[in-house]
Design a protein around this nucleic acid. Structure first.
Lengths: 336, 336
DNA sequence: CTGTTAGCGCTTTCAT
DNA sequence: ATGAAAGCGCTAACAG
């Protein structure tokens, strides 16, 4: 391994001078600089970041912890985060929590030891509070995305759950639906709670009475929804929903799968709309009506907030960015 | 920051003893071990990996460089790689090359300085050889996935391009197609060359003469294919293809988009099949017939090969894993 | 403008 | 079974 000493010897200067050249210190004579730069090139010297980090206390490493990179929503978010990180000279460590606090916790412990400068977290659920507190305790800045956590004061980037639900419900009502079911994520996740609350308000707004038997809770991940769907279909005809609002893309997709299994036509017999686009590539085989959150931007901006914190250019107070969704009407909810 | 000295003082032992406890050294008395472990807990001590790496020369950091994580093929591959890395105690750095050697090169330079233990690379193109040689020069083990590079001897995980193309062509021929066009990736990428060669052999096998005007080359990334498609459609009726074989999922999807723009029906007027599934979630709105490569397994196994190298449990000779694809027949190529 | 000294947090080596 | 000394590669602080 080529060290700063090898370069120093080669250039006939002290290691300190090499260090200064590496760090663009201004107080270096042009000739020395040239000589050192040549030695660096000749030896193909690359400075050792471990040694540097040991002193500087920063690693230029950041991390994003997503529930599952396979979900296009998080894929795009991660891409946004990586782009911004790279632009700013940081490298991105990727972790999947699979929506469990255990994996999340284990990963955060690893990050603490690795010494990342900052973290973007999509918390698995409310109990993730304990996990992110470990970051706070070590003064590692972090940004929460998509889901919030009570009792922690930090930068947040999230979607406008309320307005997005309002848009989706309004769309369904305009299509003539009056009996709408919500298949929600777990109530232990903040955005599921927000979506439920907004859903109930939206119904009220349209003069539709709330129906407890039309509110369902499941996981945000890929899962079998035949149970829920067949229960819905076995309701008395006047209680049976004509439309499903799924709280995320995986639930939406799996609702459609379950409906197909039960030979229920979409949208003829049941309309389906959901949060977040399941398609990584829009417009090639559009089917599901979605409220698409700006996943890429959410990741990009979250990384921007994080880096501003790291570089000390952020205001002391924590910031909250709330981004709107785009309603994309497709076959699954129209023309029945 | 809590250091090993703080723990040592708290436990009334030397730092060295703490180090031994941390590393499960056997020559520690049960009482001392207990005392140290308690001190570690009380102080919430986390060892500093930078300091450790400075001595051990390993960071437990690995990286994957993909063209674009947004492509579900690479998303799944990355997920497989992350799972295996995590299981083995490594953390994964993610980099997107956007199919350019420049971004790839820049990222590799960063990795060299960061000090990763190993790298999985999906090389952007043949000239990536220069980039991976930088890894070889520093003796950083790396595994090539999906695309190979001439002149480098390393572990490789790839799809069976030949058989996959054979399957796709056979499927089309069975559907009655005799005039098939290949919309390929750039010839500067090994798998595009392999796919072209296999395509020509497959045609021959079915007694179909090769037609140079039916071979097209484009990017592997999302791109506008209206030009190519309209040229194909303006061929004389007896030369005009009735089926498109797209060399990857993005090309497949964009072919379909372009066909739609030109109001050409799929599959009635034109069948389309492609390499790699564009759908992150199978079976919800199936349309495109694909030969799905086992992306997750490719990533997982590549990481496995890499880690075996890192831990010295790999044989000296480099290994090549060739994995089969699964033909999934859907609407875009059937029932015309 | 350049060099010397000391030390970041940890572990290897050698004592005891 | 435990500790002391030295050093991994680099840079802050001070000296000149």
């Amino acid at each position: 391994m080529v060290t700063i000493y090898d370069v120093a010897k080669q250039a006939g200067v002290s290691p300190m001078t090499v260090s200064r050249v590496m760090n663009n210190s201004p107080r270096i004579s042009e000739t020395t600089r040239k000589r050192v730069e040549e030695a660096i090139r000749e030896l193909d010297y690359i400075p050792n970041k471990q040694a540097r980090s040991l002193i500087s206390k920063e690693t230029k490493l950041v991390s994003i912890i997503v529930p599952d990179i396979s979900n296009p929503f998080f894929t795009n978010m991660t891409r946004g985060a990586e782009d911004k990180a790279m632009q700013s000279g940081y490298q991105l460590l990727l972790g999947n929590s699979d929506e469990t606090i255990e994996k999340e916790s284990k990963y955060i412990d690893l990050l603490l030891s690795t010494g990342v400068d900052g973290v973007i977290v999509i918390p698995a659920q409310d109990r993730s509070l304990l996990n992110v507190r470990k970051l706070a305790k070590r003064k590692i800045p972090f940004v929460l995305v998509d889901r919030t956590l009570d009792g922690i004061d930090t930068d947040v980037v999230q979607g406008d759950n309320r307005n997005t639900i309002f848009q989706l419900v309004e769309h369904l009502v305009k299509q003539g639906h009056r009996t709408i079911t919500l298949i929600n994520g777990p109530s232990s996740v903040s955005n599921a709670r927000e979506r439920l609350e907004a859903f109930e308000q939206a119904l009220k707004l349209h003069g539709i009475p709330g129906q407890p038997q039309l509110i369902w809770e499941t996981h945000f991940r890929q899962d079998n929804l035949e149970d829920i769907v067949s229960r819905l279909m076995s309701l008395a005809p006047d209680e049976r929903p004509t439309a499903v609002l799924a709280a995320n893309n995986f639930i939406g997709v799996n609702t459609i799968r379950a409906l197909r299994q039960l030979r229920i036509r979409v949208p003829e017999d049941m309309a389906v709309v959901c949060f977040d686009d399941p398609e990584p590539i829009p417009d090639y085989n559009p089917f599901l009506t979605v409220a698409a959150q700006p996943a890429y931007d959410m990741g990009f901006m979250a990384m921007q907030l994080l880096i501003e914190r790291l570089e000390g250019t952020a205001p002391a107070a924590s910031r909250r960015l709330v981004l709107p969704s785009e309603l994309i009407v497709r076959k699954s909810s129209s023309g029945r």
